[in-house]
């Protein structure tokens, strides 16, 4: 299933803010066809990993997508290599319509001159993303009017339009209803068929239902890695999560803040 040259391989990733080591030699890989989860308690360094891979924070080590090294490039270059991300708080362009949001995402393949022309018609990639995310009925609505869940789907839709081969999603289901979570999980499953999907999550139910493989981070280090069943059986994970039996059974402080 996994095609090596389309995989994301992170090794010995190290991120430091002053004297504070946020991420300590973290290694993991993710392949097309799997929905890869990064979980861990607050401050475990999950979001920081994503930040380093996408050029928002400085990190050392390597993060390769196929044969391309990502670390050290400016954020917009990394995007152009095919690595896209979302943020914990959905950041769509509130004043622009859903269609305009998606259209902007399609723009990085356009020539600068074509940017000076008005939009006529809708790109096929935009149509596909509208269909995939189920946002077709609200396409002319300003993105600011969307529900929280719809905003997250719009963000995922924007990643699809920009043809990202690696999707790094930061808490995509935080604040969503149960139905929306299920819909999001199914969407991720479809999307992951031919893309690398890495999900940073707090929500254990969501993880159990949709994760293919999971890496557990704790205080900036990898604590455990494996299938859902394997990490649930890992006593170290149980100790870190809630400390007692029943570990991983409940949702862990949904919406809690992460180290930026």
């Amino acid at each position: 299933m996994s095609v090596p040259d389309a995989s994301l391989v992170v090794s010995d990733l190290h991120v430091q803010f002053g004297a504070f080591v946020a991420v300590h030699d973290v290694s993991f890989d993710a392949h097309p066809g799997e929905v890869r989860f990064l979980i861990g308690p607050n401050g475990a360094g999950k979001t920081t990993c994503i930040d380093a891979i996408t050029g928002l924070s400085k990190g050392t080590g390597t993060a390769r997508f196929g044969d391309k090294e990502l670390l050290g490039s400016p954020a917009q270059k990394i995007v152009r290599l095919g690595v896209g991300r979302t943020f914990q708080t959905a950041s769509v362009f509130a004043q622009l319509s859903v269609l305009q949001n998606l259209d902007i995402a399609a723009g990085l393949r356009r020539s600068p001159v074509s940017l000076l022309r008005a939009r006529r018609g809708v790109d096929a990639s935009v149509e596909r993303a509208l269909e995939e995310t189920g946002l077709g009925t609200v396409r002319d609505l300003p993105a600011g009017m969307l529900s929280h869940g719809q905003k997250q789907w719009l963000e995922i839709g924007m990643l699809l339009v920009q043809d990202a081969k690696v999707l790094l999603l930061d808490e995509p289901v935080a604040g969503m209803s149960q139905d929306e979570r299920t819909a999001t999980g199914e969407l991720l499953g479809r999307v992951a068929a031919n893309r690398v999907v890495v999900v940073v999550e707090h929500d254990m139910d969501f993880m159990r239902s949709f994760a293919t493989r999971v890496t557990v981070l704790h205080q900036g280090r990898v604590l455990s890695e494996g299938s859902v069943a394997e990490i649930q059986a890992d006593p170290r994970v149980q100790e870190v999560y809630l400390g007692t039996a029943g570990a991983l059974s409940g949702a862990l402080a949904p919406g809690a803040e992460e180290v930026d």
Binding site: A75, Q76, R85, S91, F93, A94, I104, A105, G107, L108
Partner: peptide
């Protein structure tokens, strides 16, 4: 409105 977001669209 969201400069960072634009950066992560590849511009």
């Amino acid at each position: 409105d969201a400069e960072e977001r634009v950066r992560f669209l590849g511009y």
